[in-house]
Nucleic acid binder design. Structure first.
Lengths: 340, 340
DNA sequence: GCAGATTCTGGGAACGTTTCCGGAAACGTC
DNA sequence: GACGTTTCCGGAAACGTTCCCAGAATCTGC
């Protein structure tokens, strides 16, 4: 361990060179393990490095090499456990390959999406992981249009003009299984509360539900898109239950929406599944430990993050943009029963 | 909007200067809003900037200025909602002041803490936000010892040798209130399951519980430290319940521990609070929506993150290191009742 | 119309690396 | 011992900014 006694400034490659009595370029060669370097030289340089506690300056390296070993992650809200797990999966994978991750919360405001994309571009990130707040914000699309840095979208559809990789969840298969299960139980009117319609997950789930209903003419679906928030979950639940011909089963399209739904059901003193059946999307501790355990359309968010990182690393190695599809599955639970 | 038609390379300040027919330094002055610049000059430069779609290179700027406008956040596991909320609070506050946040998960391995600290230092971050996996890891302390960059610890106690700011939760007041409430209900034997003993939250909570018990000689406490995981929560619950003189009330020292506790209680068919009373730490949706709602020692994680960012920004402006203490409060819930 | 102050501008040295290039030294071959 | 290779090393030009410094231009007061 080197104690920083006399030196007030941190040592540069220059100091190392002086100390070792060699040229700056030789030090650089040793440290980048260039082949043209003698054993004696290597030894001297490494000694000087050790003595001075030298560590190369990342800024200078990045500037010179043109790569920052940094990727930016733009996410609506990291405090949402779904995104937190995705972020974890991605960060751990990137970290293993020497990359660091810059995190920016857009607080679900498309305008911040765009701003952060530009900021990261200026910061010279080598790649971008995007979980956008909206797929249709022009400013965001403009910011993306001119980009030469590799992009990986997380469960988003963008016009093919932006040449991006993507890791997509196959929401439809899970949703179809869930709907089929409800219909099997006897439900004829299914309510679905979901987030913004210009976000892929909402669209896919709705499409799947409608497709299943189309196969069963006796079944009707009523969909309430809005936002992925507890407030919307509660409000939409109230609307559906107070409406004419209220559904006998409810699908909550996200962990925050689920919270709102449960709050509203509790406020009304309704019990699951005897009064109403319930299906949620994306597993959280609450789903498992609620009584009864909540039937859930599950996927593996950690794996999504991993896969996104892999796609990005691939592109950084020169691969072409690629779309990866990850499965979703219906995990039945006692929150579903026959309609009353 | 500037379309990148002919230019394959992104424009540098040099190109802007040529285009505007002025010197490089003048362009720099305009863009850094230096006072010594005429209106005509500003106009010409800004036009050129607009035409070329020029954006300053952050690497070069950082290198020259000696500041990166970046802070590093080392956290055990961002997928834990507590830390995710802290991260959100911090990132939003930092973002507002123009700082970006590098995120690194240490996966609760002290050795990764140390590695990330060194990595961030090399990356020239302007400051560090640390939620360490251990307070006693020598490698980490060594890495911290020589640091000149401002540090803010999040709910951690480190030897005063490291001159760090810290935002600390006052766990004790909440814990004392919870214990008092349990005793008031008639409990005489209180079990507590918590994380690693060389982490401040565990120590503080245990100290508070023991202090309260000391005031009530008829009450005994049995504490099971371990790790902040569901696995430990379940195992410790089983141990306590199978032991001699099992507790009639349980305190779960974290949201993951709570999950384990609830799993074990469910597996045993025990119901809350008639068979056993339950208190948890740090609010999660599960606490609110569980039936019965779980009494919880709450704090405001978003605020913790905000405060950490404020402390760091303060230090970056030249303030001295400072300790901030944030409250915790006991929020009673129907998960507590008289012992059977 | 001139001295001195003020406003503005350009040149160029830094920041800390990497890497190209040319040359010196060592080596083997005839 | 001349010569071509190979191995190793140092010099110096980049990378894209900021900022000090000196000098030019304009202004002010008389």
């Amino acid at each position: 361990m080197t104690v920083g006694l006399g030196r007030s400034q941190r040592a540069g490659i220059r100091q190392v060179a002086d100390r070792a009595g060699v040229s700056v370029s030789s030090v650089s060669r040793v440290l980048t393990s260039h082949p043209d370097v003698s054993a004696r030289m290597r030894k001297r340089v490494l000694e000087a490095v050790e003595q001075l506690g030298y560590e190369p300056d990342w800024l200078a390296q990045s500037m010179r090499r043109g790569a920052t070993l940094t990727v930016g992650f733009v996410v609506g809200d990291i405090s949402n456990p779904l995104f937190a797990q995705i972020a974890l999966g991605a960060e751990v994978s990137l970290q293993r390959e020497g990359y660091s991750m810059l995190l920016a919360n857009s607080q679900n405001q498309p305008v911040l999406d765009a701003r952060h994309i530009r900021l990261f571009q200026q910061r010279r990130v080598d790649g971008l992981l995007l979980s956008l707040a909206s797929e249709n914000h022009t400013e965001t699309l403009e910011a993306l249009a001119g980009l030469e840095t590799p992009i990986v979208l997380i469960d988003r559809d963008l016009p093919p003009a932006v040449a991006a990789s993507a890791v997509l969840s196959d929401h439809q298969s899970g949703m179809r299984a869930a709907a089929a299960s409800l219909i099997e139980l006897g439900h004829r009117r299914i309510g679905m509360i979901t987030g913004s319609i210009d976000l892929r997950p909402s669209r896919e789930r709705e499409a799947a539900l409608r497709a299943v209903c189309a196969e069963h003419p006796e079944v009707g679906a009523v969909v309430r898109p809005g936002s992925f928030t507890a407030a919307h979950g509660a409000a939409a639940t109230a609307e559906l239950l107070d409406g004419a011909d209220p559904p006998t089963a409810l699908v909550a399209g996200g962990n925050q929406i689920l919270i709102g739904v449960l709050r509203e059901l509790r406020a009304r003193g309704l019990s699951v599944p005897s009064d109403i059946s319930l299906v949620s999307c994306d597993e959280v501790p609450l789903s498992e430990l609620y009584d009864p355990p909540i039937a859930t359309i599950v996927r593996d968010p950690f794996r999504i993050g991993q896969r996104a990182a892999e796609l990005l690393l691939g592109r950084l190695r020169g691969d072409q943009p690629h779309h990866a599809v990850l499965p979703s599955m219906f995990a039945p639970g006692r929150s579903c029963g026959p309609p009353r």
